[in-house]
Write a protein that binds this DNA or RNA. Structure first.
Lengths: 353, 353
DNA sequence: GTTAGCACTCGTAGTTTAAGAGTGCTAACA
DNA sequence: TGTTAGCACTCTTAAACTACGAGTGCTAAC
């Protein structure tokens, strides 16, 4: 793992050469030789001079040669250098963003799937997105309704207007009156309470007052717990995992398989995205190079993550996974665009599910 | 495409040799030579004799040689022959089925994901399952509740106890009385109606009686339409797609990529599974070999599909995709086991979502 | 500090070679 | 007539060899 403090300072020429070398490698994926750089560089320096500089850069740890007689490729530290550089400058340019079209669908799920797919198609990398999670949610409204002889449906609305329902099967008929009473009890007791506030005391008190309908109360509580647990079964949607095997450096059978399996299983991705929120930079975008991501199967990849915020207390994470030589500039731009699109799409529209 | 009528009849010895050849190929994945078969066969026939028989079988179209000096491999017709054979006999044996454990979760979605994963792990092939769909559904119960100043939630219960809800935002406050009236109107008008029965006439009549709350009625109708449309966004859950690239005959870069992409996109799978229900055999299990599946990306695969039935009018489809030389016997057994497990798991438990 | 020149290294791609597996055919045998 | 041994032939695969080109490091000269 590279620490920024450990990175040697570069004079102007080395800086230029390093950036050029990395750019060239990002484009071609081929090791870059001294002659290539010499031609790329506007100063007419001979390849021999460049060779000396490259030798220095290699010693410093910014670049390395895959074998003796190939050119040089960036090390993880080299990539880190490059990314740090463009993170600084990228705001200035803001090159013509492709506008992504997000159809305004009612279902959050569909929007997320669409976003993740759009991103994957546009970037040609693998993408992932978590469904938005609400923190510090509260119960807003509960209603029981009998819709069949021995069946109730419990409707639970949470603060973020998340609606949950649960079918409850009964052993006996309930009078309309009983249902009204239960509704009253449930609402007066639970409304406005957060997960933490619904403790054993509250539960005991409710059961006490429920006069023989403990089972129903307990079923409703299950459903309430479910609504709170929305976070726990946070979904991760992915797309374009197969894009990755197009990059030769990731196509090695074993590593490719592990990568694809990670995208199929999603558990690891979920954990990673959840952790990613811990160390946010100012704009919520962060780049993980190689082992920085701490995900075993992505040691040979870079991951760019962003946080999106739907405004009503709901936020989630987006990630783009590509080879280390991914086109960081365009990925950063894409993510920024998506971020703002998501924000605006839902600014006035708080529906969910 | 092979038609059973076109398959030449085989004498006993050819039958035995063909079955043996295919079994050997299924196990090893290597072309089978005459010497191998000679040793495998209990009758002491020389390889030369076998060669003659194989030559005949090749002429008939049951087997083919990948190149001159390799052994023979089954043709699609050969596989078809084999599958037809074991479909007949497999019921007799019923070898010790592995019991799959289906945890009884509340959410259908989780069950399906678990099933598809279990199957994939057990068979080492790729698996897919559609969520159960209900045909001929009707509206059973509708309820509007105000849970916030200007927000209603419409709760719709369908015949299969599928529950849908939709949040409706209002421009004005509604009195409790108005809501009761609307509830009455909605229930008296819509209850018991199927998708087809809710036509323009019914809608017009409702709007007429809704006295200025047309917007709400129309929103509710949207939600109802949604509930009916459950079928349209039938989900397909998949697992183990990466298993496929372990089989050399499928690992060729281009074809493997198409396969994996099919499993990522799922649209094609969905269509295939929906069509599969058209031509059911008696026990709901069907085997598609090669181009029989009509799915472009699976020309080199075999697909075994089964229908599962949850009893309350809900049914869906399972599919297992593997190389043509998949272990049909164990796949058929696994599917049968899962089928019965699914049936029994939900026999007394009609919850959904 | 820069550059030209040169020997050297190493990976890639193409060719050659040898080995092995399997076939088809022929002729002999029961 | 069915079965078998034998043999020449084909074809794939892997290993060994070759030639080539790209790139380097070093030295010596500018």
């Amino acid at each position: 793992m590279v620490r920024v403090e450990d990175m040697p300072v570069l004079d102007e020429r080395k800086h230029k050469i390093l950036m050029l070398l990395i750019q060239s490698y990002l484009e071609t994926g081929e090791p870059v030789g001294s002659r290539t750089l010499s031609k790329l560089l506007e100063d007419n320096l001979s390849s021999a001079t460049i060779r000396n500089e490259m030798s220095d850069l290699e010693e410093m740890g910014y670049i390395m040669s895959p074998h003796t007689s190939a050119g040089r490729i960036p090390s993880d530290m080299g990539y880190r250098f490059y990314v740090n550089e463009i993170m600084n400058e990228s705001d200035k340019k803001c090159n013509e963003m492709q506008a992504f079209v997000i159809e305004k669908t009612e279902k959050m799920e569909k929007v997320l799937k669409q976003v993740v797919k759009t991103l994957a198609v546009n970037t040609n990398y693998a993408t992932m997105i978590t469904s938005p999670s609400t923190s510090g949610n509260r119960v807003k409204f509960i209603q029981l309704s009998a819709f069949d002889e021995k069946k109730l449906v419990a409707l639970i609305v949470m603060d973020g207007n998340i609606v949950k329902n649960k079918v409850i099967e009964l052993n006996e008929d309930l009078t309309q009156e009983t249902i009204l009473k239960l509704n009253l009890l449930l609402n007066t007791t639970l409304n406005g309470l957060s997960r933490e506030q619904i403790n054993l005391g509250v539960i005991a008190k409710m059961k006490e007052q429920s006069e023989g309908y403990q089972q129903i109360v307990s079923d409703v509580l299950d459903a309430v717990a479910d609504a709170f647990n929305e976070d726990d079964d946070l979904e991760v949607y992915t797309s374009g995992a197969t894009n990755l095997i197009k990059y030769p450096e990731l196509a090695a059978p074993e590593s490719a398989e592990r990568l694809l399996m990670a995208f199929e299983d999603k558990q690891e991705l979920k954990e990673f995205l959840e952790e990613a929120k811990e160390d946010l930079s100012d704009d919520g975008i962060k780049v993980y190079i190689g082992d920085e991501s701490q995900v075993q199967s992505m040691q040979d990849c870079s991951v760019v993550t962003a946080t999106y915020d739907l405004g009503n207390g709901m936020s989630g994470h987006i990630g783009i996974v590509g080879p280390k030589r991914m086109d960081y500039k365009s990925v950063l731009d894409s993510l920024k665009t998506i971020k703002s699109q998501l924000d605006s799409t839902f600014s006035g529209d708080k529906k969910k599910k």
